[in-house]
Amino acid sequence: MAEYDVTGETHKEQESPAKVVQEKKDPLQEDHRSKQFADLDRVIGRYSRERGQLIRILQKAQEIFGYLPEEVQAYIAEKIDIPVSEVNGVVTFYSLFATEPKGKYTLNICMGTACYVKGAQTLMNALKEELKIDEGETTPDGVFTIKSTRCVGACGLAPILVANEDVHGKISPGEIKKIIQTCRKGESVDNKKH
C-alpha cells in the first residue's frame, strides 16, 4: 500500500501490546495476532494526537489486518475514546473499507463509464464464470476475491482489471484466464518458499 505520511515522523513505541483474543489456541497465530495489535497501537499513538484522523487510522488498521473486523473497530473506538457506532458508521460509509476477509488476490473490474462502454460487463461475466463465484465473494480456497471498482483513471486503456494493485489495461475475456493463471503460479511459487 502507498505510504500516506507527509511528516516522516519517527515511530513512537507504545508501552503495552493489546491483549490477545482468548479463544485462539495456536501459539504461532496468537503471536501474530498480538504483533498486529501492537502495530495498531503504534498507529493509534502516532495519529490520535491530531484531530480528524479516524479515516487514516482505519486505513492503517486495514493494512495491518487485511480487513476491519468488529473486534478491531471496537478496539480503535475504545482507544481513541469515541463511540463504536461512530467508527462503524465511517467504516460502512466508505467502499474501500472491508468488514470481511479478502482473498489473496482481489480482482477488480473497473466499472467506470469508459470501461463499461468498452465491455466491462462482459469481462465481469467471464471472470465470474471462470472462478465460479459472484461479485464480492471469495473462492473457497481463499485465493481470489472478485470486486468491481470505481474508476482508476486509466480510461485511455479501457477496459481495466486491477489485480491487487497492478493495473492491467485493454483486457479481453481471454486475457482474464491468463491473469488468473499468473496469480495461481505466484501462489504456488509462494507456497514453495515456505
Binding site: 502507498a2 500516506y4 507527509v6 484531530r51 480528524g52 484522523q53 479516524l54 479515516i55 487514516r56 482505519l58 486505513q59 458508521g89 465511517v90 460509509f93 466508505y94 467502499s95 474501500l96 473499507f97 470505481r150
Partner: peptide, 28 residues
C-alpha cells in the same frame, strides 16, 4: 504547510462540503 488526506472510496466526497467532512474524519 500542505497536508495530504487520502480518501476511502466515496464518490460524494467530490462535493465540497462532503469533502470537508471527510477531511475531518467523518462520514462524507
Amino acid at each position: 504547510r500542505i497536508k495530504i488526506k487520502a480518501g476511502a472510496g466515496a464518490f460524494v466526497c467530490g462535493e465540497e462540503t462532503a469533502l470537508l467532512n471527510s477531511i475531518e474524519g467523518q462520514r462524507g
